Simulated assay, not measured.
Amino acid sequence: MPDKPCEVFYSPFDVRLPLAQEKDEEIETVVQPDLAIICDRSKLDKRGCKGAPDLIIEIISPATAKKDMQDKFLLYERSGVKEYWLVFPLDCVIDIYALNEDNKYERTGLYHYPDKIKVGIFADLYINLGLVFLKD
């Protein structure tokens, strides 16, 4: 990632994903990911983010699983979100996808407690799942 300051935003935070070249007021695809990391400040405005964040993290629950694993997966892929993480808190698992050269998601890892995850969009950032999923 270039030397740009990145920011983390959490729900409720609107991410507007244009399908083509719609004017801002015409964008109908609006999502509120659990976490969004945005490194391009030009995408930020008073209404949230217009365009694809660099990384989106969705925390999966039984009520949201299908939407997060299918609908949002395809939407984020099409929109150019570089990395998409699916967090399964009950299983202490994180499933990570990154865009490949063909702009299609490829699984880059399936991580379990207490693994350490290398964050793909940052050169030297690792996340210790032993600290994310606190077990008794």
Score class of each variant (00 low, 15 high):
residue 129 L to D: 04
residue 89 P to Y: 03
residue 88 F to E: 01
residue 3 D to A: 13
residue 117 I to F: 07
residue 54 D to R: 07
residue 126 Y to V: 13
residue 97 Y to W: 06
residue 52 A to E: 11
residue 95 D to C: 04
residue 51 G to Y: 06
residue 11 S to K: 08
residue 125 L to N: 12
residue 100 N to H: 08
residue 135 K to W: 03
residue 40 D to N: 10
residue 40 D to R: 09
residue 118 K to Y: 07
residue 132 V to F: 06
residue 77 E to V: 05
residue 101 E to Y: 13
residue 57 I to F: 11
residue 13 F to R: 15
residue 97 Y to R: 08
residue 76 Y to L: 06
residue 52 A to G: 10
residue 127 I to G: 05
residue 119 V to N: 01
residue 49 C to P: 11
residue 9 F to Q: 02
residue 85 W to A: 02
residue 98 A to S: 02
residue 8 V to G: 04
residue 98 A to C: 11
residue 133 F to A: 00
residue 30 V to F: 14
residue 21 Q to L: 11
residue 116 K to G: 10
residue 96 I to M: 05
residue 52 A to P: 11
residue 94 I to T: 06
residue 60 I to H: 01
residue 85 W to L: 07
residue 118 K to I: 06
residue 39 C to L: 11
residue 107 R to S: 15
residue 38 I to Y: 04
residue 122 F to Q: 13
residue 112 H to M: 08
residue 59 I to C: 00
residue 128 N to I: 02
residue 77 E to S: 02
residue 125 L to D: 13
residue 1 M to C: 12
residue 49 C to E: 06
residue 84 Y to R: 00
residue 32 Q to A: 05
residue 84 Y to Q: 03
residue 38 I to H: 09
residue 77 E to Q: 03
residue 125 L to A: 09
residue 43 K to A: 09
residue 135 K to E: 10
residue 39 C to V: 15
residue 134 L to N: 14
residue 76 Y to T: 05
residue 111 Y to V: 00
residue 21 Q to A: 14
residue 99 L to G: 06
residue 62 P to H: 01
residue 40 D to Y: 00
residue 58 E to Q: 12
residue 72 K to G: 05
residue 85 W to F: 01
residue 69 M to I: 07
residue 116 K to D: 15
residue 81 V to G: 10
residue 69 M to V: 05
residue 15 V to E: 08
residue 116 K to M: 14
residue 67 K to P: 07
residue 129 L to K: 06
residue 18 P to T: 11
residue 69 M to P: 03
residue 16 R to M: 13
residue 114 P to G: 03
residue 28 E to L: 14
residue 6 C to Y: 11
residue 130 G to C: 00
residue 73 F to Q: 10
residue 77 E to N: 01
residue 78 R to G: 02
residue 73 F to W: 03
residue 30 V to G: 10
residue 123 A to H: 14
residue 96 I to N: 00
residue 118 K to M: 08
residue 68 D to I: 09
residue 102 D to A: 10
residue 14 D to Y: 12
residue 1 M to N: 12
residue 25 E to C: 10
residue 21 Q to E: 15
residue 99 L to C: 03
residue 132 V to A: 13
residue 28 E to V: 11
residue 132 V to Y: 04
residue 7 E to T: 04
residue 46 K to I: 09
residue 18 P to H: 08
residue 107 R to W: 12
residue 18 P to L: 05
residue 19 L to N: 12
residue 12 P to C: 14
residue 63 A to Y: 14
